[in-house]
Deep mutational scan, measured.
Amino acid sequence: MVQKSRNGGVYPGPSGEKKLKVGFVGLDPGAPDSTRDGALLIAGSEAPKRGSILSKPRAGGAGAGKPPKRNAFYRKLQNFLYNVLERPRGWAFIYHAYVFLLVFSCLVLSVFSTIKEYEKSSEGALYILEIVTIVVFGVEYFVRIWAAGCCCRYRGWRGRLKFARKPFCVIDIMVLIASIAVLAAGSQGNVFATSALRSLRFLQILRMIRMDRRGGTWKLLGSVVYAHSKELVTAWYIGFLCLILASFLVYLAEKGENDHFDTYADALWWGLITLTTIGYGDKYPQTWNGRLLAATFTLIGVSFFALPAGILGSGFALKVQEQHRQKHFEKRRNPAAGLIQSAWRFYATNLSRTDLHSTWQYYERTVTVPMYSSQTQTYGASRLIPPLNQLELLRNLKSKSGLAFRKDPPPEPSPSKGSPCRGPLCGCCPGRSSQKVSLKDRVFSSPRGVAAKGKGSPQAQTVRRSPSADQSLEDSPSKVPKSWSFGDRSRARQAFRIKGAASRQNSEEASL
């Protein structure tokens, strides 16, 4: 019999049943779409005989028809080659250093092939080196495509196609095609072959870009420019304004007297070369007005044109410092986490200390709560409330009815002989401070409620009492009544008793 458990639990079988086999339907690529829901599959020993999904071999995947050992070796080799080519560490840098020397040698020989004295001697060596480079780069490109299958997102032919569309893979295939075209054109020995050789060798310069396949330098440059984009835009904007204004004023001053400034384009060329401190010297002002304007705008514009270099330099320094700090933080993070875990385990398992309490023990206690009866409008029989619902239920009951529930009420002091009981919340009678006064009792026990209740009776009109401690106690149990005489010590004692009862009640409510 096959059962599914969608909550991750395992159904224990009877003692008479045989052992169960467990598997996940959602992990089987050969299962139909209706059953690939991630549910837990529990099947008996007879299920494989019936041809269940556990008995079927995997229909898809890279190692579907391969033995386990061969499949493990296949995956291990794939991961190894992918890490060597895409994430070089340790001795893997030897291969990348060899590729760099190969590319650099091709670049140097290409430069010498353009010089007439070394053209014949360098062409033969360059031809052999180009063949070696094409073979190495071609094999490396196909190995990269194959090894990318170790990543989940690059599996299958669609994943390989996605990997081949990456920018550096596109550069690799462009350089490979250009190198093959250069060799094919150079072997023909005609004029067209020579011109094609010179034009296609430009694409071989892109080999130097592939040295940084992970794009660390470009990411660093982009992060620095993005972090200081506002400062760079401000400096370039002001420098551009200085360039336009200086070129226009010098053009007006030199026009008609200097042949170097016949057009405004000549003035812009002079301004750009001057403000960037290049100074070719092919154009320069000759009149005193033009020289004065050139000197003034040079002092202003050079500072703004040189400002981005300082901004980028400081940004690079701060970014490198931040990377070093992050690297040290990552080195200290795992030991710190292990130290915290060890300290907590020692703290939680220390049996010699009796003052340690688990944080979840508070929620494991069961509280007896009286249940409210809507018919009699009273609190009758009580029941046990689950631990997770205790706090919310108690808050709702307290807010609606005004009752305070507590588990172990402390012993109440008995009323003394000299001070009789003053009210239901005086704190001297046991069992009276455990409940709050309802809204109805407060209204009818207050002086205003009594006056409103007995407004029509003649006794209420004739008998008038001065405010005393009895009425103030019933009005607000948490307030201290004001004494009408300064020498009345009994009223002071009563006030301290009320304060103590109120503080105890607040602490009990907070504990609930």
Rank of each mutant, 00 (worst) to 15 (best):
M1T: 02
M1K: 06
G9D: 00
N79K: 00
L85R: 09
H96N: 02
F104S: 00
T114I: 08
E119G: 04
S122L: 02
Y127C: 09
E130K: 11
R144G: 13
Y154D: 00
G159E: 07
A178V: 03
V182M: 03
G189V: 02
N190H: 06
N190S: 02
A193V: 05
A193D: 05
S195C: 12
S195P: 02
A196V: 02
R198Q: 05
L200P: 02
R201H: 02
L203P: 03
Q204R: 09
L206R: 14
R207Q: 13
I209T: 08
R210P: 09
M211V: 03
D212G: 01
D212E: 05
R214W: 09
G215R: 13
T217I: 09
T217N: 12
K219N: 09
L221R: 11
H228Y: 03
K230Q: 03
E231D: 13
E231Q: 10
T234P: 02
A235V: 15
G239R: 09
C242G: 10
L243F: 07
L243V: 05
F248S: 02
L249P: 13
V250G: 10
A253T: 07
K255R: 01
N258S: 11
D259Y: 07
D259G: 04
F261I: 01
T263I: 02
Y264N: 15
A265P: 09
L268F: 00
W269C: 15
W269L: 12
G271V: 08
I273M: 10
I273N: 12
T276N: 06
T276I: 08
T277S: 05
I278N: 15
I278F: 14
G279C: 15
G279D: 15
Y280H: 13
D282N: 15
D282V: 15
K283R: 00
P285S: 14
P285H: 14
P285L: 11
T287N: 10
G290V: 15
L292P: 13
A294V: 04
T296P: 11
G301D: 13
F304S: 12
A306V: 11
A309V: 01
I311N: 04
L312S: 03
A317T: 07
L318V: 07
K331T: 12
R332G: 13
P335A: 06
A337V: 04
A337G: 09
A337T: 13
L339Q: 08
L339R: 08
I340M: 07
Q341R: 14
Q341H: 14
S342L: 09
N350K: 00
N350H: 05
S352P: 00
R353H: 06
R353G: 09
L356V: 04
T359K: 14
T378I: 01
P386S: 01
P411L: 06
G418V: 01
